[in-house]
Write a protein that binds this DNA or RNA. Sequence first.
DNA 1: TTGCTATTTCGATAAATATAGAAATAAAGA
DNA 2: TCTTTATTTCTATATTTATCGAAATAGCAA
Lengths: 95, 95
Amino acid sequence: MNIEISKEEKMAALFNALSEPNRIRIIKILRDSSRELTCSEVSRLLQIAPSTVSYHFKALRQAGLTQTRQQAQTKYLSLNTETFRNYLPGLLDSL
Amino acid sequence: MNIEISKEEKMAALFNALSEPNRIRIIKILRDSSRELTCSEVSRLLQIAPSTVSYHFKALRQAGLTQTRQQAQTKYLSLNTETFRNYLPGLLDSL
DNA sequence: TTGCTATTTCGATAAATATAGAAATAAAGA
DNA sequence: TCTTTATTTCTATATTTATCGAAATAGCAA
């Protein structure tokens, strides 16, 4: 059984995942390049520690805004367009 | 002079103001009723302490999502539709 | 003036958050 | 096998946050 979660709580969780500048930057890169990103690549691009990037990746994934594909040691991050479509239509264009 | 603020930081601040369920509830009431709300009214409606509501009002106002009109001791809160229009078009319908 | 109502600020607190470095895990390649 | 690369987890820390009750502020009304 699931704990009851209100629409407001769901939306708040989505906004919370987006309430950090580096996470917005990650989302924008994904939106604009339409390719996948790796942890180390983002670490280089944004100049933050890999462990911090991993933490942000986890936050985005847990909110359902992204998904990952694994190949060998590397995990490729991409947008979960369905979540944006279902809960935040048009928002990607606002970033 | 102003501290340089990136678009990502601005958007993150807006999302941060929206990352709390009770603040989303306040925004939704304002959107649906198209009337103003007072601190005490929201305190009664959402069953949270007036000081907590005041704290949320301040967070929303500082982000630019709402504005207040004062009449005697009472402050009336309303949506700042311009901010929604400029930065988050269509978002009100997603809440 | 005195008491009532509305809001904010203050003080305190418990919880969550962003961050980094170190250690752990796992796969690739020499 | 040993080394390098990629990522995650753990530990620690400093900061922010949501919350309340109490006190302060300000206006209204009897």
